[in-house]
Design a binder for these strands. Sequence first.
DNA 1: CCTCCTTTGTCCTGAGAGTGGAAAAAGTAG
DNA 2: CTACTTTTTCCACTCTCAGGACAAAGGAGG
Lengths: 396, 396
Amino acid sequence: MRRMTARPANAHQARLLRLLRDGGPNSRAQLGDQVDLSRSKLAVEVDRLLETELVVADGLAASRGGRRSHNIRLNPHLRFLGVDIGATSVDVAVTNAELEILGHINQPMDVREGPVAVFEQVLSMAAKLRATGLAEGFDGAGIGVPGPVRFPEGIPVAPPIMPGWDGFPVREALSQELGCPVMVDNDVNLMALGEQHAGVARTVADFLCVKIGTGIGCGIVVGGEVYRGTTGSAGDIGHIQAVPDGRPCACGNRGCLEAHFSGAALARDATEAAEQQRSPELAARFEANGTLSAVDVAAAAAAGDATALDLIREGGNRTGQVIAGLVSFFNPGLVVIGGGVTGLGHTLLAAIRTQVYRGSLPLATGNLPIVLGELGPTAGVIGAARLISDHLFSPA
Amino acid sequence: MRRMTARPANAHQARLLRLLRDGGPNSRAQLGDQVDLSRSKLAVEVDRLLETELVVADGLAASRGGRRSHNIRLNPHLRFLGVDIGATSVDVAVTNAELEILGHINQPMDVREGPVAVFEQVLSMAAKLRATGLAEGFDGAGIGVPGPVRFPEGIPVAPPIMPGWDGFPVREALSQELGCPVMVDNDVNLMALGEQHAGVARTVADFLCVKIGTGIGCGIVVGGEVYRGTTGSAGDIGHIQAVPDGRPCACGNRGCLEAHFSGAALARDATEAAEQQRSPELAARFEANGTLSAVDVAAAAAAGDATALDLIREGGNRTGQVIAGLVSFFNPGLVVIGGGVTGLGHTLLAAIRTQVYRGSLPLATGNLPIVLGELGPTAGVIGAARLISDHLFSPA
DNA sequence: CCTCCTTTGTCCTGAGAGTGGAAAAAGTAG
DNA sequence: CTACTTTTTCCACTCTCAGGACAAAGGAGG
């Protein structure tokens, strides 16, 4: 099948496409209820969308008491590619136009191998998904990278953990390779978009999405739109000082949040505890694997290991203190916690909640849910698909 | 003269009114250059605005090489009232439609006397300004109060330093009294609006405006619009923890920024230093007045008093640490420092800059100006006028 | 003062967007 | 089979708006 290239011709069409994306197949009459257009106008715009083949007829809807309406839906052959490049692994997924995941693969990979090597792997993963018959090609792709991005151009800028990527024209290069439009963003922003589209943040206009993985970042959503800051580095909370004169951090300062709590810090603390024989559970796991990660800490904690629980609690307290400050400043309607450490679960969440509810004023915390992300590892790829669909479903 | 009641009928008219507000009198041809409307369309909209008397003809413009264009300007009889209620004083000013201050008075007043007493004084100040012939009435008023506001309704919510105002219908009450439209906002947000309209932030889309007065607050501007948060308490940074296990704060926590540095904290520290004879300058001033304020500290510092300088530096360091965190999080294009303590000047600014440039990552600070506000005590009233004019110059 | 050129303002026509009524089409309920 | 509802199409009419033609007003040079 040839790929779709059409774009909505005006704001009305864009609106309709997004309604179909977010609400699934829909009858013309139901669409009419949602858009405040005259029947004739709506019919004209829908007909034009049908001509572009972006949407297709989809049988008859159930009767609402009279003549049955004709259903329409987004073209079921449309395919988006969602790519979430983490520090130590890559997720690639294929979605339909309604952003439902049709196929998803994850592979370990060190982002420091550089853009060329990583993209080779991404493309082979995409090819593998295509080979299963899920897609014959892609109509658009969203890419998340673990560092700041100059958003309009889709180019990483001064990314601390992936220095080889600085200035690499990710958007252009991948657009060439894939032969479709591409948008690039920070992985944390994509997680926020994902949770907004299909997760816990569906109904909230202003929220924060804290991702605790190898590093720590925070997606900021203002009025339903991701806020990226002046240079694309907004939400970079890993290097906020959490402990005065604390541990040295890779950034050159001391006491950064990330130095005290993150996937990497947790692994180091756990290894230290194992070596010093402060924790039988962790020592046993260290013995078995020769290395420890956040997953091991989670397992030890689940088994009731006091040291592991302490590590989680203390990290949660640090993180919670920082978040408390952000809550005072930003007054969000929701805080989502996500990323690799969600395995640490409610011990972590409880510690964060305690600090935030204690450290911020009641007006800001009074009605503030602090919850774990709902989508887990799929948040990033769904967010990536959402990013490119937002771009394509907007007036040209 | 009868008051204007007309509002722009559509977005084009609103756009034109704002151009005239921000750019002053303008020729029709120049307006045409800025708005991307056909000449005919522009002529129609301008004629309609002339009919409403919101704008008036204003002679002929200089020739640009051919026929001279007709100038138009906002009706010179339009008057806005800007009110900035601080913790310890009230500013009231009258502006024309271009938001130029025509008259401005300031009076000490304790906000804790409650809304009824304060509004009595505000109304008498407004009457005094009117009596000078500057205005025959007001076409709109903006009010700033030192606490969070439920913005759509214009009602303070849970304001810590003005408990008697909780739930008082400020907007409605003042609209009744003044007989014109009223908008209410947090005083810090109005300072940000003021600096954006006529001060240092004219060309920046995303910036922070930190106001250090009796308390500490922060105006947040995202994409040119003030961000107020879910419950109107965004920017309430005075109660972010700056010192672990620090001084007790009125809010019940310990180590809040406001407890360690603010007009109130500075006065207390200075008094203590004077009583303990650690500072001859401060002691002398304490002797003379029986009380000390930030102004005295500024004067002592200017005279080279080491203790005063230390107080300022330490406060600046604390504030700078908090701002460093906010800069990492928000990645603004500018940070403005304002409020009563601007008298402390460059000693304070230098301390803040040091902490921010040291404590945030280079990508966020690389091109980040940190400057004092340009408007001083007029920022609030200009912001108030801007607030109501934004409201009135938008489609009904 | 006159001519030529530029800019500004006005008028007019035609294309397109959009509304809302009428009627046909397709159901349901009894 | 009838009465009523909902959906869809068709059509006439209004409104907006762009852009061209032209008139008005001014500058520059002779």
